[in-house]
Computed example of a mutant assay.
Amino acid sequence: MACVHYKFASKLNFAIATFDGRHISLGDLKKQIMGTEKLKAAKCDLQITNAQTKEEYTDDNALIPKNVSVIVRRIPIGAVKSTSKADAIRRTEPVMGTSTVNDDSSASLFLAQLTKTANLAEANASEEDKIKAMMSQSGHAYGPVN
């Protein structure tokens, strides 16, 4: 019997998912974890990350080798799992020849949402956006209303 050790990010101890063979598909691992933990598939999805390499498994057909430790996070259905550096650059830098009015308003709207985020370290944004949000958050206590 082969196994994958998994734990939720908020828990301390690992649990074990057992299977036959040398690897298990991501979709099968998610189903097994959801069944074991009594989670409803309609309410959330699972984000699986390798505990040692920090590699996030995104394709349901991805094969996870036996005896690997993974970190599991529950995410809302339809949430963006991850963005590449190219997506972050596209979000912060306007493309040549395009109007920047819509880009600036969407960027400021994104920054306003990011400013309300409690944990910026785990936010799904570029490092520059996180720094801008942190600077904005740190100045709120000294605003004119206070």
Rank of each mutant, 00 (worst) to 15 (best):
R73Q: 14
S84G: 11
Y57R: 00
K38Y: 00
S82E: 14
K66V: 06
A62H: 14
T98N: 08
T83M: 15
E55H: 14
P65L: 04
R90D: 11
D87H: 15
A41R: 12
G97C: 03
S99K: 09
N67Y: 02
R73F: 03
E56Q: 15
T83Q: 14
S99F: 10
G97Y: 11
T49H: 05
G97F: 11
S99Q: 07
K54S: 08
K54M: 06
N61K: 13
I64K: 07
T36G: 01
K66G: 08
I89V: 14
T92G: 06
N67A: 02
I77Y: 04
V72D: 08
A42T: 13
K54Y: 05
D59W: 07
A86G: 00
C44V: 11
I64V: 15
S99A: 07
P94E: 00
P76I: 04
A62N: 14
K38M: 00
E55M: 05
A42R: 15
R74V: 11
I77H: 06
K38I: 01
N61Y: 11
T58V: 15
L46K: 00
E93L: 13
P65Y: 01
T98V: 08
K43I: 02
G78K: 13
A42F: 06
I48F: 01
E37Y: 03
K38C: 00
A51C: 10
V72G: 09
N67T: 02
A86D: 10
V72T: 06
K40Q: 11
E55I: 12
P65G: 01
V95T: 10
D59N: 15
T36C: 01
D87A: 14
T53K: 02
P94I: 05
P76E: 10
T83W: 07
P65E: 02
R90C: 07
E56F: 05
L46A: 10
G97I: 03
E56V: 15
V68N: 05
K43L: 10
L63F: 05
V68F: 09
R74S: 12
R74H: 05
P94G: 04
V72Q: 05
K38E: 02
K85Q: 14
D60G: 11
A62M: 09
S99Y: 06
I64S: 09
T49C: 13
K66R: 14
R91L: 09
D45H: 09
R90H: 10
V72E: 07
E56Y: 04
L46G: 07
T36L: 00
K40R: 12
K54L: 09
I77L: 12
R74M: 12
A62S: 15
A88G: 05
A41Q: 03
Q47N: 08
L63N: 12
N50V: 04
A88E: 14
G97L: 08
K66I: 03
K81D: 05
S99H: 08
K66S: 11
A88F: 12
E37V: 01
S69L: 06
T36H: 02
E37F: 01
E56P: 02
A88V: 07
T36E: 00
A79L: 09
D59V: 11
A51G: 04
I71M: 13
A79D: 14
M96Q: 12
R73I: 04
